[in-house]
Design a protein around this nucleic acid. Structure first.
Lengths: 321, 321
DNA sequence: ATCATAAGTTCAAACGTTTGCATAAATGTC
DNA sequence: GACATTTATGCAAACGTTTGAACTTATGAT
């Protein structure tokens, strides 16, 4: 028996001893069949998966999720759809088959059919990211407008007037928000935002690499660049080095996520630390609350961020001193 | 009904239509209670988890696993223990509670209590890596002696006589095997293997970084280094650059895993591609066979590797030409 | 018309738990 | 000794499927 109120601690101890002795282990399936609870959290990996898996960011996020789930005695069920058209079917199997108690959603698109499905089913879920289309959904996110504002502001403070932006896929809320923050900072300082200084890509090194040949062939080149993700920034670094530009002497760089490698890049990358581990950790906490039936009050939960300034964005003047 | 022999395809279609219409979805728990099968694979993440999650290698491996599991209609249950002493308990819950049909084990230590437990329980599992202590366990691995032999051999072919080795945790089979291959290659060419040219660490950048201050303060320094993992190699690169050494002009480098970033490092890293994705993919295939009751014939399954030569190990003479 | 075959229906048992109710036994109170 | 209280025991129903047996009906061959 599992902690019934009317059972004395002594008996409980005896029972446990016998369980041990006889090698008895309760069957999880039978248990959850009757209790209608699985002690399992589902996580749906977005398609295509390559980008995500090749990013340290994901590993760190997952670590936060797994750690907290384990600590709260939940298991984690990972699924991915075989194609993006199959995403709703995949999650439907988990949800309607009552295989999990709640779902974690990653990398939310600006209008995501998965969110639509889960809302409509009234199934517990938490968004890592945010969606304007479903303000009632539980969300955990950074203030991404602010993260980009801070990064851009930092470059402006270093005296830069021509600032480029290497963004991610335009259908992600994340890309949209960061672009907004970038524009806001520029606008407040009366600086130009030229369309040719903004380029969209994937969260891959190649994207950063390609963006550089694009930027550097312009008649008027930016003197500094905000990059949506550290991983992309590595491609940017490589692109600049191949074209013969030095960082930060010729071009300054700031990016996002502050993965462990940023510190080890040459030069070390300035990056906005978005508290990735905490993001995953908090998402689990929130999901558990939603599962428990608590109302979603504070929405979205905002994870604080912090700009870490390193050599890649240091004004050469400062550097010399 | 699910594909009974005596049911005509027409009826089956009708039933499905009604299922759709009525919004009926079978309950997974009830199903697996009676079928004694869960269509779920467990994956046990080793402790401590930080190292693993901060490595691209893991993401790529996981991608192979999730992709193939999904394709074969299996879900993936991820667990990690809260402490390394708790590992056996954690897996015991999954196994004895019949929560999963089989288990994938990562980063096997040279003598791993988890392997002991699973063997003894006669529960289906596959090792990603290998264990000499349990030769009957199903395993999927590279020929890691050979990977290191090839990497070392390559440096020797470039004319290097003094070759260092930055290894991983000594209790991992992986570290052990690669060190062996390194020694073998040196031995065959009558080259010295000095104890001070071999340093053990974690799979972290810091380890590589620290190893360099150690190597470079030696009276006789190696002219080239084999590094156990790309991630560690980034730390090595950074360490060398801070100490004022250039790669490959002063020191040549070869490492392992060939993660996406290796190509984008400066200089691009020579690395042994171990077919990480395939490793995960194949592990799932093998596990499914073990679950199906097939005997373990070919053991371990060897995933082929290939040395990718890039700038970090190019003989300056070649480079000039 | 007779019979084998195929296709479909109906019913009950089983999977291994939880939960609640009814009963029994032990302990304490007046 | 009668009664309430605490603690324990036994039993049956329920969770939502699968599986097999028994039975019915339709289809065609002889």
């Amino acid at each position: 028996m599992s902690n019934h109120p009317r059972i004395s601690p002594e008996t409980s101890r005896k029972v446990k001893a016998i369980m041990e002795e006889q090698g008895y282990h309760p069957n999880v399936m039978a248990k959850s069949l009757v209790s209608k609870t699985t002690q399992t959290l589902g996580i749906m990996l977005p398609r295509p998966a390559e980008e995500l898996f090749q990013n340290y960011f994901f590993g760190e996020l997952l670590r936060g999720i797994v750690t907290q789930a384990t600590r709260m005695n939940y298991d984690l069920l990972m699924t991915t759809a075989t194609s993006s058209s199959d995403e709703v079917n995949t999650i439907s199997r988990l949800v309607r088959g009552r295989r999990v108690d709640g779902v974690l959603l990653l990398a939310s698109k600006r209008d995501d059919p998965l969110i639509a499905f889960l809302s409509q089913e009234r199934f517990p879920f938490v968004l890592i990211g945010r969606s304007e289309a479903y303000p009632d959904a539980a969300m955990v996110d950074n203030n991404n407008v602010q993260t980009a504002y801070d990064a851009t502001q930092h470059l402006i403070a270093q005296g830069h007037q021509r600032i480029g932006f290497v963004s991610g896929p335009p259908d992600l809320t994340l890309s949209h928000d960061r672009l907004l923050g970038y524009r806001q900072a520029l606008g407040e300082h009366g600086l130009e935002t030229r369309p040719e200084w903004i380029v969209e890509g994937e969260f891959l090194q190649e994207s950063g690499f390609r963006a550089m040949s694009q930027f550097m062939s312009l008649p008027e080149r930016p003197t500094s660049i905000v990059v949506i993700d550290d991983n992309v920034a590595f491609g940017v670094l490589r692109g600049l080095s191949e074209l013969g530009y030095r960082v930060p002497d010729d071009i300054s760089l700031v990016s996002f996520n502050n993965i462990a490698l940023s510190e080890m890049a040459s030069p070390p990358l300035s990056s906005v630390d978005i508290g990735t581990y905490l993001l995953g950790y908090t998402a689990v906490q929130s999901l558990l609350r939603v599962i428990g039936g608590e109302p979603i009050h504070q929405n979205p939960v905002i994870i604080p961020h912090r700009l870490i300034v390193r050599e890649s964005s240091m004004n050469p003047t400062f550097k010399r001193s």
